[in-house]
Design a protein around this nucleic acid. Structure first.
Lengths: 122, 122
DNA sequence: CTGCATCCAATGAGATACTG
DNA sequence: CAGTATCTCATTGGATGCAG
């Protein structure tokens, strides 16, 4: 058979901001919408909303709405969502080594945006 | 520190066909361009080429060119590329469970909604 | 404060035809 | 056989403004 089930996991992580959001929530515990926005300065409201909705759909994050004025909404990782973290950590560690590996291989070449981005983030 | 290094790993797997290609190569060992194409019927030559090039750039697959007529090119996983497989397998297993998890979640919710409806005399 | 609607730019992906 | 070139369409991401 094919390995397309890996795509199921991939789908959840794909999206420019999903890993960062997951990191923030896995770290800060429960965060409000505005706190997330402050923690990830470059994200727009639209993106934050849509990415959160997708994660919510997949039962990775929980959305708690407080019916009050002004509105207050809190996001947190679900218990189920925690099971995703070992994978993220594995990817994180591998990715870290990989950056070195590529650097070594292409020492003199200016490399592409993808690798450059992850370096700039550090 | 942030988790953006996970993106480095993610970048490699992202792309509609990368996981399938990796699966085929991790499985069939060394394959020619045309063999890959036959193994993945829906892929176009363009996509196959571009995805392979990206994987090659990241040193995940090796491209062996035989200078002859007709041309012959063989692709295989590099030793380094092998180190990526534990991650893929983890994602695969998780993804498999996740499909069930989602099915159950949304089936249960549908059931509850149905039950609620009949209670309301709808 | 949280989030939706709209409009727009950039990228990804597919179809088809051509080449050494 | 193993690609490249070009064109088109779909999806994603981003900026801005409005609304409850």
């Amino acid at each position: 058979m094919d390995d397309c089930k890996a795509n199921a996991a991939l789908d959840i992580l794909i999206g420019k901001w999903k890993p960062v959001i997951l990191y923030q929530l896995g770290n800060g515990g429960t965060l409000r919408f505005s706190e997330l926005q402050r923690a990830i300065p470059d994200i727009t409201k639209k993106m934050l909303t849509s990415q959160l909705r997708e994660l919510e759909y997949h039962d990775i994050v929980h959305r708690e709405i407080y019916m009050q004025i002004p509105p207050k909404v809190e996001y947190s990782i679900t218990e189920y969502g925690e099971t995703l973290f070992p994978i993220i950590e594995l990817m994180h560690n591998w990715g870290q080594k990989h950056v070195h590996h590529l650097e070594q291989k292409y020492r003199d070449e200016a490399d592409q945006a993808a690798a450059a981005n992850s370096r700039n983030g550090a």
